[in-house]
């Protein structure tokens, strides 16, 4: 599962959306709304990633009473990995922002 060693943008958004339990379509809708349509997740991509995250125990089936809209949520392991990836992304951002401000005074 190569893409899970370092979360891709799609995996990152999906995991972030699943901190609160949600069904698949709600994940797509949330990401599209929050990014103003800038970032979209196609249904095949979403389904592939959900299966992958389930396999890796990063999310779990929270409620399957509606078979058309199964609800998933982040596991503890998923939580941990998401937080770690937020740190990685923060490092990227702060480096870029510092350089844009003119870098460190030598």
């Amino acid at each position: 599962m190569k893409s899970l060693e370092q979360l891709t943008d799609s995996v990152f958004y999906i995991m972030a959306a699943l901190v609160q339990p949600k069904h698949g379509y709600a994940v797509m809708a949330l990401v599209e709304k929050e990014t103003g349509g800038e970032f979209t997740i196609g249904p095949a991509t979403l389904y592939t990633i959900i299966k992958k995250l389930l396999n890796e125990n990063l999310i779990f089936l929270h409620d399957e009473s509606n078979p058309r809209r199964k609800v998933y949520a982040l596991t503890e392991k998923g939580h941990h990995i998401l937080v770690k990836d937020i740190e990685r992304r923060k490092t990227m951002l702060s480096l870029a922002e510092r350089e844009l401000r003119g870098g460190n005074a030598e």
Binding site: T40, I41, A44, T45, I49
Partner: peptide, 13 residues
Amino acid sequence: QPIYTDVESQIDK
């Protein structure tokens, strides 16, 4: 929008 929106899932496909 296309059904696949990332390269990684397309490789899986």
